[in-house]
Design a protein around this nucleic acid. Structure first.
Length: 367
DNA sequence: AACCCGGGGAA
DNA sequence: TTCCCAGGGTT
């Protein structure tokens, strides 16, 4: 629970920001509805994701899973498939698990206290505060990247906002300044303010309704704040990818259920930077499954895909497979002899499956 | 505290 | 290219 604050202690900028919000707030589908489930979904979808990017996913999600019960009953595959393309897929898996907890342990009602909220899968300090303040108008702070940036400037805080010290310092400040009559609106006003005016680079200070309260603006340090520690560099991984067919069927591989892009489908690939090295590895790989591989040396697509800490440099080739078993064996029979993480699939059924990031873009090369 | 987990828009 | 976004989980 946040500290109490009196009207006398409330900084002048708080009411000015609320006034600005009343005029300039964005019209978003989960706002003004008072539905904690909708707000919860929107918050999780928005994590590390811009609003414009997640909007269509949100609309689709609500069609598929309109209530906590609907989501709780959905399979993990359905849920991750609906998340396909958004990234950070653990968010989808954890959201489903969290909602299942609500249905089984809270009678389907999203809890109204921070401790219970934060005990739910995928719900941390931020999401708990956001849902509680926006859905139930409880005086809880929701400290996200926007809030860290805004307060670092308003109060000229030089600590690294990604570190524990800076984050703790700012959270204390937000608790002191949170207006208890409109906590939900206040938290949302910070989001809208941070995404339109107090933006990371080149903040639009001349248009800012609270620049007279901003210490960084007064000191001329808005360009230097907030302080963020630089991230570690990403490593580059060269990959040779094979779009390999047995008749009308493509051979696909399901990634392990741990690590990057877990449990998603991809085309067979090898960690190699040139055709011959990749061809050799793929022949070994598919040979162990019982296939003979003929790979065409003409590259059909070169694709670079950047993750947070990794970069895939993918070279894609087409090829055909020959089953080493008896000539009479049909696809279905061969299928039963493959390991569980491999399958043969016709192109028309591709849309049914969840693709591992950039592999989804390669499906357009298949016929 | 450090690292892992996606994807995309903007400069 | 680099930055960074309505973060949370794991080790």
């Amino acid at each position: 629970m946040s500290k109490t604050n009196t009207a006398a202690q409330e900084p002048k900028w708080v009411q000015r920001l609320l006034d600005w919000y009343d005029v300039n707030k964005r019209d978003l589908p989960w706002r003004g509805v008072g539905d904690p489930y909708k707000i919860w979904v929107s918050e999780v979808m928005s994590q590390q994701t811009r609003i414009e990017a997640m909007k269509p996913y949100y609309d689709n999600w609500m069609q598929l899973f309109p209530t906590v019960e609907a989501l709780a009953e959905a399979s993990e595959d359905e849920v991750v498939h609906a998340w396909q393309g958004l990234g950070y897929y653990s968010r989808a898996r954890n959201l489903r698990l969290g909602v299942q907890e609500v249905v089984s342990n809270y009678g389907g009602v999203v809890p109204m206290d921070r401790k219970s909220m934060e005990s739910l899968k995928g719900v941390g300090a931020y999401t708990a505060g956001a849902v509680l303040s926006m859905a139930y108008n409880l005086p809880e702070v929701a400290v996200d990247g926007n809030v860290l940036r805004i307060y670092a400037r308003l109060y000229n805080i030089n600590d690294d906002i990604l570190g524990a010290v800076g984050k703790k310092k700012i959270t204390a400040l937000v608790e002191e300044t949170l207006p208890h009559d409109r906590p939900g609106d206040f938290n949302q006003s910070l989001m809208d303010f941070g995404s339109s005016l107090c933006i990371p680079k080149s903040p639009r200070c001349s248009d800012c309704p609270i620049n007279s309260s901003c210490e960084a603006y007064a000191n001329g340090t808005t360009a230097d704040l907030p302080v963020r520690i630089k991230k570690t560099k990403s490593i580059t991984i060269p990959l040779v990818v094979g779009l390999v067919q047995l008749g009308d069927y493509y051979l696909l591989h399901k990634r392990p259920n741990t690590g990057l892009l877990r449990s998603m489908w991809e085309f067979p690939s090898a960690e190699a930077s040139d055709f011959s090295a990749g061809e050799s590895q793929l022949k070994d790989l598919l040979g162990a499954l019982g296939f003979e591989l003929k790979l065409d040396s003409t590259m059909v697509r070169e694709l670079t895909h950047v993750f947070s800490h990794r970069k895939w440099e993918m070279k894609t080739y087409q090829g055909t497979l020959i089953w080493r078993g008896s000539d009479a064996e049909q696809i279905a029979a061969i299928q039963t002899k493959l390991p569980a993480d491999y399958m043969l699939l016709p192109r028309l059924e591709f849309a049914t499956y969840t693709w591992a990031g950039p592999h989804g873009k390669l499906t357009e090369l298949c016929k």
